[in-house]
Amino acid sequence: MSFELLQPDSLPGALKALAQHGDEAKVLAGGTAIVLMLQQKLIAPTVLVSVGRIPDLAYIRSEPDGIHVGPLTTLRDMERSLVIQTHFPLLAQASGEVGNIRVRNQATLGGNLAEADYASDPPTALLALGTQVTATSLRGERTIPLEDFLIGFYTTDLEPDELITDVFIPASAPGSRTTYLKYRSRSSEDRPCACVAAIAAFEAETCTDLRVAVGAASEVPQRLPAVENLARGQALTDELIGEIAAGYADNIDTLEDIRGSAWYRTQMIRIHVVRALEELRNGRR
């Protein structure tokens, strides 16, 4: 394991380093994922660009249309943030379900998204919330909807010279109810076998908007707008919930790993979408 460690103390410095080394460089933030990959010798970058000394990349900033979260914000800070707890409780929940407290104190939001590990909690919650990722390089800045950002196993839309510089989470409709369900098939500290993030807005009994993201069961977390739309303007009856759950179970190409077979994951999607929607209908905010 031999690489050059760069520790730029400014964003331009970091972007310059990435532009210079391209694919041979890897970004080090909290290090919870990349250090494991380095130790297991799965990756062998020649340059490691540590972003820890860049100022002002850890923040949670509330604005009228949503919140901006800095890429170096730790998952523990997100879990404990009053703003997030108040306005995006499912994100606080999902952040608080990752690994254990030692991991959450170290892992960052930017690192979590850039790693694109399929068996991780925050991406699913963020997908349901309609998150946008801002990536910056010396070439400029662009904003990418999360569904386009996450491409496949450990694969994102980021170019080698780009760095995540902001994560924007738009405000949900007032009075929305949300939930995050993490299903662990093994120990209480395991990664999810499947997870469901759901947000619904209601007028009286009528659901005016529904967003459901299912994660950890396929390459990338998935939203199925056509299925979500079944709920629009409807009361969430047991039958409708069953129909939506079946829609997710039937249309997601589930994967098989040590936490469960593809068949099992399909069952778990159906059951947990039902449980999530029942929770929303029954009034939990």
Binding site: L42, Y118, G152, F153, L255, D257
Partner: peptide
């Protein structure tokens, strides 16, 4: 080493 990377990834690739 690549063996622990898992069936899911290999299958999809």
């Amino acid at each position: 080493r690549l063996a622990q990377f898992g069936q899911a990834v290999a299958q999809s690739t």
